Computed example of a mutant assay.
Amino acid sequence: MTPHNASDDSRWSDLDRPPLNATALRRGLIREGGLYRDIEVVQRTGSTNSDLAGRAAGGDVDEGAVLVAEEQTAGRGRLDRRWTAPPRSGLFFSVLLKPTEVPVARWGWLPLLTGVAVATGLSRAAGVDTALKWPNDLLVTVGEEERKAGGILAERAGADGIVVGVGINVSLRAEELPVPQAGSLALAGAQGTDRDPLLRAVLRSLEDWYGRWRRAGGDPSASGLQDAYAAGSATLGRAVRAELPGDRSIVGEAVAVDGDGRLVIATENGVQEPVGAGDIVHLRPA
């Protein structure tokens, strides 16, 4: 028998990073009356969001379809920023949601809802305190420093769907970080970096929060979502700069997330300005 040299592409090339078990995930998450219909794990793709949105537009998938990639080669954040990480070092997945009974005006809450669900699931399963930077970054503390360990991207898919994509750095080591200010669950002191229980916890939490929000007709207050988001927010109560479309910026204190999911910034001249889209820079520690 010839000796086997594990190449970089071998599924066992990094024993700290075992592959996900799609069969076990399906068994643990798909149930009668539940949200999830199908869970597929692929070795490598450009972007799970693009793949799932394409299938949804073609009418090939139902609500609750989940696509997970062991490696994303063209993962996207907001503003088309690239997101790359070594194979099996993180959780990269997308879920198709069709909240047809919720008014479309409230669909803007879905990325915030996903953030609450991910933070809740990770605190349970990894013992890591994750905070939410508006609108869709997941922050962890490494040393004394706040760092981005994940992000969320929601995109319309077909006439009645939204694909919510999540990327989380799980086992990335310091030398593997894409930028020095990035972080990972491992660097934040996670109890474990086995991705199977982490993914299950996050998907169960998403199913729970999405169900609550849907039953409340998408009302962020009645569903408890608005309060949960505020409680987990790293942005509220801080001095921030909002970089807005058209090269405009606002500086002030982030005081609330309003009923439409917008960040309300109180400026120095006493005006409260809601921001619906833009880049937020935290100017000082909480």
Rank of each mutant, 00 (worst) to 15 (best):
H282Q: 14
W107M: 08
V275A: 04
I280K: 00
K148I: 13
R248P: 00
R124V: 14
T130P: 01
S249L: 05
G33E: 07
V264R: 05
L67K: 00
S7D: 09
P103I: 14
T100C: 09
L199C: 06
P3E: 14
G161S: 06
T267R: 11
V41L: 03
N169G: 06
R81N: 14
G77P: 06
I168S: 01
N49Q: 15
S47R: 10
G261C: 05
I152R: 05
R238L: 05
R238E: 00
L20Q: 03
S223H: 03
D258W: 05
L67E: 01
G211Y: 09
I39A: 04
R78W: 03
V275C: 07
R284N: 08
R156G: 12
V163M: 03
T45R: 07
S123C: 05
R195M: 00
E145Y: 02
N5G: 08
S47P: 12
V61Y: 01
D9E: 15
A182E: 03
P245K: 02
D227C: 01
Q72A: 09
N269V: 13
V257H: 02
A119R: 09
R195G: 03
R76D: 07
S123Q: 14
L283S: 11
K98D: 09
A190H: 10
S223L: 11
G34A: 10
R284I: 02
V257I: 15
D219Y: 11
P18L: 06
G167Y: 06
L110D: 01
L185Q: 03
G143A: 11
L15E: 13
P135V: 15
A85P: 01
S47T: 12
D208M: 09
T2K: 09
G217D: 11
V179D: 10
L96Y: 08
L172S: 09
A266H: 06
L236C: 12
E243V: 10
